[in-house]
Design a protein around this nucleic acid. Structure first.
Lengths: 347, 347
DNA sequence: CAGAAGTGATAATGCGCATTAGCATCGCCA
DNA sequence: TGGCGATGCTAATGCGCATTATCACTTCTG
């Protein structure tokens, strides 16, 4: 039935078979029966019949070159996406992205070819394939502000996942500040008055937001005592020593991995977790099984984050749509997972 | 420093800035300093300097149209890739694919736009973007043989993941027959003589291979008694009744989900698992947490499967490489995970 | 019956790039 | 001095498609 043939099917060949011109085929395929170019139903049907009998598919490269969008969304991850370290972080995002892209009939172009430079991928490199996509999604804990600015400059349509402090960057992020504040409130409600925060040594927006949420919330409780410090994860034993000196009743830890390790260290140190010290996890990236312990923690709606980012990008790409500023830069509420590591303070 | 500018950077503009022709720019960029076209080092450097001062990137669509490969590998999944049902199945594959693609400097084009028809995605549809990719990877439990033939016919380079019974289809698969046979041998070595097999009601190659491995291995043990039946998972209580009537000492189940459910049913029925009946799992697709029970089971090397498939595809795409038939259709050994559900037969 | 308005198409062009044929210039040897 | 090979580039073309300008022909209309 179909004519596979060795010669590639083009509009020109369809045109020959239907006894019309290439232009006519294009007009039929694109439904352009305007006042300019008129195609009567009979001709239209004849062309469509011929096409149905072949395996013709419009060459996307040619379409793109001719200046029409082709429903391809780029996906760029600043950290390699799948390898196990980040798997729990990226998989839900991609789930949402994929589902929403499917809704919109879009394909995803994953820029795996981006070279890695000082532990971070670089979006702009010779022969990057950015131009093939109609727009792009940017994922990653930290993004290069220079690259973001360049994207804005060149008016390339894109959406960042996670709040970004760069002018003109559309994003869908998570309201970590509010989530962290809520966790602080819960701790306070459970009687905690000595709070310790061990945050990451990073200037990523998400990290700063969590610190801010913590700071602002504790500031509204005058009788609370606070200790805070940062770590890169290389000396958790030392960190624990300093934390223990403060004698907190609850410890807020950014990294699930650090939380798991600190819990181990604390238990070895003779401290009962969570009876003597509750632990709350704020962060997201975990290597496998760090969450084997059922920590009370923030749970960003990652699937929805991915889906919303795609939805926003398609709105940006839609010429008939002009998203309001509030839509272009939006934070989603952050859920909290009630685990077993935040308990009422011991009498 | 870079000149973002409103006007898109093209070779023509580079050419103007460098005082040469567009052709020269192209020649320099592609290192084509053959006998035909000679570019002295001075000119070459001048062009490169100009390019370095701009944000020029070759338009991939134009390159593709002009007939050069563009290092894009298509990824097509017959079942939606990420949604939770298949997440454990696809994620490791994609991990391997991504890692290997990165090695080769390839981007991945995920065909999420394929429409779903009777529960299965269709690769060929109007405006499919297959043509943008240099080649493609096909994933999924069951693939449409007609589509596979069509790909072979049109000489589109691709690699299927999983053994495929269609002529001319290159694949990287898993030797389920050998893995299943090994599991049978282990059961026999543990004293089991009454074996039951509950397989899926499917003609997918992997399913058939597991049945074959089972059949062939039991055939070589004359004193073994076998029961086998199939299920679609809709009446596991009934299936269990029939299995119990046979009084097996070990039960081979294809689906982890069914295994988990049967175990529950059996225990309710007063049967001790695994003391009275061992359970072995052969299959792969599990909805979340079915493997909370530590079943003894087959563990296909899925990460490697993905990586090897990409490696094979790039070999196929390499004009200087002509993979041997044995490389084009290859099965990887299937690991076995020693769980707690296969024990020596009770006295 | 001349001209306007409408109908059904097509030729031509450009998108950005890779590639080939070929032109202009120069040095060199006879 | 004439011719010939080597050198350094460019003009021209095509990839497959979308789009615009235009053309040939038919039917009204005054």
């Amino acid at each position: 039935m179909t004519a596979p043939g060795k010669t590639k099917m083009t509009q020109r060949r369809i045109a020959e078979l239907a006894g019309v011109s290439q232009a006519t085929v294009s007009l039929v395929l694109n439904g352009k029966a305007d006042s300019d170019a008129r195609i009567p139903e009979a001709t239209r049907q004849r062309v469509l019949d011929v096409i149905a009998g072949t395996s013709y598919v419009a060459d996307p490269a040619a379409r793109r070159l001719a200046g029409v969008g082709n429903k391809i969304l780029g996906v760029f991850t600043y950290e390699p996406a799948f390898p196990s370290g980040s798997i729990d972080f990226y998989t839900p995002l991609l789930t949402g992205i994929e589902a929403e892209a499917e809704q919109h009939g879009c394909d995803l172009l994953v820029f795996t070819s981006a070279p890695v430079e000082n532990g971070r991928r670089r979006l702009f490199h010779e022969n990057n394939r950015l131009g093939l996509a109609d727009g792009a999604l940017l994922l990653g804990r930290e993004m290069d502000p220079v690259e973001l600015e360049r994207l804005v400059d060149m008016q390339f349509p894109f959406v960042a996942i996670g709040r970004r402090d760069v002018a003109g960057v559309p994003y869908v992020g998570v309201d970590y500040a509010a989530g962290t504040a809520e966790l602080v409130r819960r701790a306070v409600a459970l009687g905690h008055r000595r709070l310790a925060l061990l945050h990451l040594d990073s200037t990523a927006e998400s990290v700063l937001d969590r610190q801010r949420g913590f700071r602002e919330e504790v500031a509204s409780h005058p009788d609370i005592r606070v200790w805070s410090g940062s770590t890169r994860g290389d000396d958790l034993v030392g960190a624990w020593t300093r934390i223990r000196d403060f004698r907190p009743t609850v410890l807020f830890v950014e990294s699930p991995d650090h939380a798991a390790e600190l819990r181990r260290i604390a238990i070895e140190d003779g401290v009962e977790i969570p009876r003597e010290v509750s632990i709350v996890v704020l962060g997201e990236v975990a290597v496998h099984d760090a969450l084997a312990v059922d920590f009370t923690r923030l749970s960003p709606p990652r699937v929805q984050l991915g889906a919303d980012a795609v939805a926003l990008l398609t709105r940006i790409l839609d010429p008939d749509d002009e998203p309001a500023d509030a839509d272009l830069r939006r934070l989603l509420g952050c859920d909290i997972t009630d685990g077993s590591t935040l308990v009422a303070v011991a009498e």
